[in-house]
Amino acid sequence: MKPPAFEYLAPASLDEAVAALAGQDAKILAGGQSLVPMLNFRLLAPPLLVDITRIPGLDYIEDWDGGLRIGALTRHYTLETSPLVKARFPVLHAAMAHVAHLAIRNRGTIGGSLCHGDPAAELPGLALLLDAHLKTTKRTIPVAEFYQGALATALGEDEILTEIMLPALPTGTGWGFEEFARRAGDFALTAVGVTVGAEARIVVIGAHETPMRLPAAEALFTDRADIAAVAEAARDEVTPNSDLHASADYRRHLVEVLTRRALTAAWERAA
C-alpha cells in the first residue's frame, strides 16, 4: 500500500530535532528500512516524521580506548566494510554479513536498527553481546537496560540515540557468531553470538521478545568447558514462541546447535 499522510521535517541540528519531537507523537526517520515498510502497511500513522539524516556529524566510526564509538547514523554497509570494526570487533564484522541485503544495508543505520529493536535483528543482539553504552541526547543507557520488550526501548519520546559506544574486548577474546535464516539476508530464525575470555557471554536473538543473554549457560562455561553441555543448557534456558516460520521446539534445537558451533569457533579463536 501507500503510506498515510504525514508532516515531514528535516532539521539541521539535534536541538531542532528534539524540539520537533516534543509532545508530537512523532516518529524519527533515519534509514527508514523498518519504518517505511510499517508505514506502507499502515501499521503506523504518525502525524509527523522527523528525518534526522540531514543532521551532520552522526556518521563516524572512531577509536575509543581500544573500543569504538560509532555514530548513530552510520550505515550498515559502512559497518560491514570498516577495517576498524573488523580489527576491533570481528564478531560484529561477521554478523554484518547476515544483515539484510545490499540495498537495505546501503540505507539502514545502526541507530535505527537498535531503536527499532526487532527481536530477530542482528545489531541489537550484538550490542548486548558487546556490552554497548548507548549515548542519547539526554543520557547514556547501558544496553542491558535498553530493551523493554519487542520493539520497545527505554528511549523517551523526545530522546534521540546519537552514539553507540563499544568498550574494548580483553586481548585474546575468542568469538563466534552463528545464524540460521531461511534465505541469505532474511531475519534470523535464531542466531547466537558468543565471546569467550576470562568469562563467556552468550547472546541469543530470535528466541525471545528481546535479545537475551543466557546466564546459566554462561556460568557453565569454564576453561575446561564441556561445550555440548553448555549448548544443552542454552537450549533449556530459552522459551521461544512458535510462528509461521518455525516451531518453538525447532528454535530450541537451533539454539543448542548454534551455541555449540559458536562456542567451538570462539574457543579455537581464543588466545
Partner: peptide
C-alpha cells in the same frame, strides 16, 4: 524498484522522494 541513489543501490519503495 531498486535504483541507485548517490552511488548506492536502494529500494525506491522504502525511501520518500523528499529524502
Amino acid at each position: 524498484c531498486t535504483v541507485i541513489l548517490n552511488g548506492d543501490s536502494v529500494r525506491a519503495c522504502l525511501c520518500f522522494a523528499v529524502q
